[in-house]
């Protein structure tokens, strides 16, 4: 029996075994949930009437994440180039930015960025500040991805580009960036998934995104479980496909090189 349930490189488990295990696990975990929750009064109807709140929160989360993705790609790309610059002040500034951001928790950045900096200079657009903070946060990670991508393009490629007479700009355009893009697409997809999850922290500065929406519904209906289950489902609905897509990209990249 245990042999049937084991999956090792030498003797992989059969498809039947995998399907059976998944079916039994789903039943078992559902059973546990049902047992734990019988006796509590579910309040799905009330929460359902708040679906517009969820929907708006979901849209806001999507919008903020997409805007922050664009922003962090721009910031990350520039920081990666600055990090490789031969002009020392530029290089050290990039290192200072990347290392300090990567060394700080996002909550600290959000609180400091909004209450510490934005308020001090009289900038009260929460959403814009939130997007900027997220972009700066994620940009530092993307900068390191792009830098690793550029480093992975071998010396011989730069030599070959020189040899056929490409200018430095053309070398980046036609030789380096296409290879970097393929290299970093899988981790970039992962980073986008992180951005979506991290955007939930913007709730602490009062941005009306998905997590904020769920906690609003919770305080209006006093039904914590019914408010937070849809919240989790909404996030998974966004992050699972991206995670699968990222895995698919990784396997394709391995196959091609």
């Amino acid at each position: 029996m245990t042999a049937f349930l084991r999956d090792t490189p030498g003797t992989p488990a059969s498809k039947v075994a995998k399907v059976c295990v998944i079916a039994v696990l789903v039943l078992a975990y559902s059973g546990v949930c049902v047992l734990a929750l019988t006796g509590t009064t579910a309040n799905w109807a009330t929460v359902w009437s708040y679906r517009a709140t969820f929907w708006n929160g979901w849209l806001a989360t999507m919008g903020i994440s997409l805007a922050a993705l664009a922003g962090s790609l721009l910031i990350g790309g520039l920081a990666a180039l600055a990090r490789r610059s031969d002009f020392l002040p530029l290089r050290y500034s990039a290192i200072a930015y990347i290392e300090s951001v990567r060394g700080l928790p996002l909550v600290v950045l959000v609180l400091f960025g909004f209450y510490g900096v934005a308020n001090a200079i009289g900038w009260h657009d929460r959403v814009a500040v939130g997007i900027l903070v997220l972009s700066l946060f994620s940009g530092a990670y993307i900068a390191e991805m792009i830098r690793a991508g550029i480093d992975s393009v071998g010396r011989s490629q730069w030599d070959s580009a020189d040899a056929i007479g490409l200018s430095p700009w053309q070398t980046y355009c036609y030789v380096v960036l296409p290879q970097v893009a393929r290299q970093i697409l899988p981790p970039l997809a992962g980073q986008f998934s992180s951005l979506i999850k991290d955007s939930s922290l913007l709730y602490i500065i009062g941005i009306h995104e998905l997590t904020f929406a769920a906690s609003q519904v919770n305080s209006a209906t006093y039904s914590t479980f019914e408010s937070f289950v849809p919240l989790g489902v909404c996030y998974l609905f966004l992050t699972l496909p991206i995670s699968l897509w990222s895995k698919h990209l990784e396997s394709r990249l391995r196959y091609e090189t």
């Binding site: 011989s156 490629q157 030599d159 070959s160 040899a163 290879q179």
Partner: peptide, 12 residues
């Protein structure tokens, strides 16, 4: 025209 020992071509 320049030809190196290996890895002359752009893999993409």
């Amino acid at each position: 025209g320049i030809v190196f020992q290996a890895f002359n071509l752009f893999p993409h």
